[in-house]
């Protein structure tokens, strides 16, 4: 079996073909063994990388599910860390509120940045913009919180939903810009040429051909950023601060957020608060999962439409 394989593999090279069959099969067996060993090492590496992830998921589901109930989902936070009862509804509303604000700001700006970088690549600004988005992606999120804290919270606005949303949007913009850039680059030049060949202007090509073609990828890119923003705690500490009730105001009142409540309840020594924090973690995880599924469905629907 191994001999026939080797001879077919090397029959293009007359010189190697004339080498002894036993030697060839020996080489082949050694190469095959080496390949299997390397494959085994790679598999172990994957296992090692996935184990903590699986444990986190398992633990969040196990602990979260036992504390999760209708009351948790439908009532606002219990002021007491010691007593049982109450839920994270205020945090859920706050998180959705701030992520929505952040998305309204960050999605257009991020996609616009990516569009400029790809479609206007003749501009001398492009390398500068790319460098800048790369740097922004690496900025620690607490700095972003500090920045908004200094100019908006201390600047007279106080802690607010808007301050939290702005901080999250600053985190989202570079992620969306970077990921969208890759997606827009994937749109084949054939389509651009076809559109230009019909007498389209650049903005028509970009708005009506390139961006719709990249549509589902842009949604995925945005969702990546939404998932990241929904779980951020640090930038909200200095901008949204936290609240015990549902806050409909955009300005003038501190806002609650799921990660903030989880942080506050998990760091104390009290068991009922810990249980709620686990349920909150599960809720946050499910929220991100749900948003991702919705985005996928929208993406698939737009793909099916074209």
């Amino acid at each position: 079996m191994s001999i026939t394989t080797t001879s077919t593999e090397t029959n293009s090279s007359q010189k190697r073909f004339t080498l002894g069959a036993s030697k060839m099969s020996g080489n082949y067996a050694a190469r095959k063994r080496k390949s299997q060993i390397m494959e085994g090492i790679l598999f172990l590496a994957i296992l090692l990388a996935l184990t903590p992830l699986a444990l986190i998921l398992f633990e969040v589901i196990r602990r979260g599910a036992s504390a999760m109930n209708i009351e948790f989902l439908t009532s606002v936070q219990n002021i007491s860390l010691i007593r049982e009862g109450g839920g994270y509804l205020n945090g859920l509303v706050g998180t959705l509120y701030m992520v929505a604000i952040a998305s309204i700001i960050a999605v257009p700006l991020g996609v616009a940045t990516a569009t400029y970088v790809v479609e206007y690549s003749d501009s001398k600004l492009v390398p500068f913009i790319q460098f800048f988005t790369d740097v922004m992606t690496g900025v620690p999120s607490i700095f972003v919180g500090l920045f908004i804290y200094t100019i908006l919270v201390q600047g007279g606005g106080g802690f607010s939903t808007l301050a939290g949303g702005l901080a999250l949007s600053l985190l989202m913009i570079p992620i969306i810009a970077r990921a969208s850039e890759e997606v827009i680059r994937l749109v084949p030049d054939d389509l651009r040429n076809a559109a230009y060949g019909l007498g389209a202007r650049r903005w028509q090509v970009v708005m009506q051909i390139v961006l719709p073609t990249a549509g589902s990828g842009l949604i995925t890119a945005s969702m990546l950023a939404v998932a990241r923003a929904a779980g951020e705690t640090a930038p909200l500490l200095l901008t949204a601060l936290g609240a015990f009730k549902i806050v409909p105001e955009l300005l003038g009142s501190p806002q609650a957020a799921l990660p903030l409540i989880i942080f506050n309840e998990a760091r104390g020594p009290f068991e009922p608060a810990h249980a709620r924090a686990w349920a909150g973690a599960l809720e946050l995880m499910l929220l991100v999962l749900l948003l991702t599924l919705i985005a996928r469905a929208i993406g698939r629907k737009t793909e099916a439409a074209i």
Binding site: P188, D190, L191, N193, A194, A195, Y196, G197, L198, G199, A200, R201, I209, P212, T213, I306
Partner: peptide, 18 residues
């Protein structure tokens, strides 16, 4: 753009829009 409206083009590889 005005020129391309009067002088159209068909390409090597069929490239319909999505």
């Amino acid at each position: 753009v005005e020129i391309r409206r009067r002088i159209g083009m068909v390409f090597q590889k069929p490239n319909p829009f999505p």
